[in-house]
């Protein structure tokens, strides 16, 4: 069975039995966290996710992008971290990954129905994109692995349960994350997904929020430009 059809079926099944989807629960939790006041007394509505202070509608579909205030390219996860530390006054060590993911689910939900619009305007965006492209095609490690070797050369072929997705082409994999993975009951953003890809092929994983992850994300997002976000957070196998 086509994995996408299977996911749809599982989603229906879960909705019938539980009455609510795990994605909806996480989004609700994320909304609460978004409106929670930080040590500075501010909520996350005081933060700019790229379209102006507190504007969430369509914001996630335009990430990653360069932000002048941090002089960095940030994706949704990193921008949430920036908001919590710089605006809300949390200390970095106070921030739980599970909270960042829940907030990412909530903010991403405001981009359902939007199209991916990522640009390479600032030099930093162009440099990170170029690095992402190189990382994507790199062969490294004891297993000579690299993303493209399977996700370009062997698209549609199977090693294990699922066929390799055409992540740069028709599958528009960028639009599948953040997502709930029903097969493993996991709540993941693309950062987690990329780390798991490396882990699956016994390659050391890049740290969360690190430049190589952002570089790969910008590369993937740019290739998905114009693609419709059918549903964020998504529901995948």
């Amino acid at each position: 069975m086509d994995p996408r059809e299977e996911a749809k079926r599982q989603k229906e099944l879960l909705l019938q039995t539980a009455g609510i989807l795990p994605t909806e629960l996480v989004v609700a939790q994320g909304e609460e966290l978004f409106n929670r006041k930080g040590p500075s007394g501010k909520t996350m509505a005081e933060c700019d996710f790229g379209l102006g202070k507190g504007v969430l509608e369509g914001a996630a579909a335009r990430l990653p992008r360069y932000f002048l205030d941090t002089n960095r390219v940030e994706d949704l996860d990193s921008r949430i971290l920036t908001c919590m530390t710089r605006v809300q006054g949390f200390k970095p060590e106070q921030i739980k990954r599970s909270e960042v993911v829940a907030i990412a689910f909530y903010i991403a939900s405001k981009s359902t129905g939007h199209r991916i619009q990522v640009r390479l305007l600032f030099p930093e965006e162009r440099e990170l994109y170029a690095l992402g492209e190189k990382l994507f095609y790199a062969r490294t490690g004891a297993r000579d692995v690299g993303c493209a070797t399977c996700h370009v050369t062997y698209v549609g072929r199977r090693a294990g349960v699922l066929p390799y997705a055409d992540v740069l082409g028709k599958d528009k994999s960028w639009t599948h994350w953040p997502a709930y993975r029903y097969s493993n009951d996991q709540i993941w953003t693309m950062q987690d997904r990329i780390r798991a890809c490396y882990g699956n092929i016994a390659h050391p994983q890049p740290a969360l929020y690190s430049q190589p992850i952002l570089a790969l994300e910008l590369f993937l997002a740019y290739h998905a430009n114009g693609a419709l976000v059918e549903e964020w957070p998504a529901f995948v196998r």
């Binding site: 990170l128 690095l131 190189k134 990382l135 490294t140 490690g141 490396y198 390659h203 050391p204 994983q205 890049p206 740290a207 690190s210 430049q211 190589p212 992850i213 570089a215």
Partner: peptide, 15 residues
């Protein structure tokens, strides 16, 4: 580029 990759952590960067 390797400097940027190094931000991914020691084990990742070494590869």
């Amino acid at each position: 580029e390797l400097k940027r990759v190094a931000a991914g952590g020691k084990a990742y960067a070494e590869v």
